[in-house]
Nucleic acid binder design. Sequence first.
DNA 1: AAGACGAGCAACCGCAGCATA
DNA 2: GTATGCTGCGGTTGCTCGTCT
Length: 259
Amino acid sequence: MVRAPCCEKMGLKKGPWTPEEDQILINYIQLHGHGNWRALPKQAGLLRCGKSCRLRWTNYLRPDIKRGNFTREEEDTIINLHEMLGNRWSAIAARLPGRTDNEIKNVWHTHLKKRLKHSHGSNANNRQPIDPSKDIKREQQPVTIYSPVSPPQSSSDVSTSENNSNTNTFTTKTETNEDVSEIDENFWSEVLSADNSSMAADFRVVGSDQYFPSSPPPPLPALETVNGYGSNLYDTDANMDFWYIPFTRAADLPELPEF
DNA sequence: AAGACGAGCAACCGCAGCATA
DNA sequence: GTATGCTGCGGTTGCTCGTCT
């Protein structure tokens, strides 16, 4: 089996895009969309392969791309999601509006890996707090309870309190990279039937994101204290039919280590 | 001032997965 | 069931620019 000739051998251009090429691509996609990437360059009059066009569009020219430095919150989100998903950059990018998988990958390799290394020494894969400034004992982290059945509509609907060491913890399976765990049907009724104070006693943030099959809830306000990471409380996953909440009802979690 | 070096980032490469014939 | 084509993804490369010596 002979591999198809690469762009260069086909007389197609490689390397950095010129502003003129960018404009041609933008104009074409605005007029016709990008149904077939392979056919696009020919139809648009570009001496590029379809792959190159797609990459240029998705990573740079798309109108919803957010340019500029990553905020601390975005970096924390990436670290958090990477811990959960691994090198699934596109899945991570799906939760960071305006950021591309390529950009996130670059940021990870250039900034975040180093940051993690400095935070935890050589063991970058453990589950200890990421930022030294957030290096607080789990028992001191604020507790935040949300009901995915009826998501809170404002920050006043959120129950937050300081945790205590006598937590009677409900738990569920820790999320793996690939699986979506099933939540037993009693779970959310337990949550909903609990008043705020008992919820604070029953649940705690354990520093792990959790997916819950559900329809996407309405947007929530960002809460700076949640999970110590300052991220939104939940986010939708563009590719999957569920959403996640950055706390875990931790049924089968192992004993949390003391720090 | 200039060369060496390293960081950051855009772009490329190759593979896997999916759809279709 | 198999071959083929297309797209998307993750790993990697190499260019550019800033900093250091």
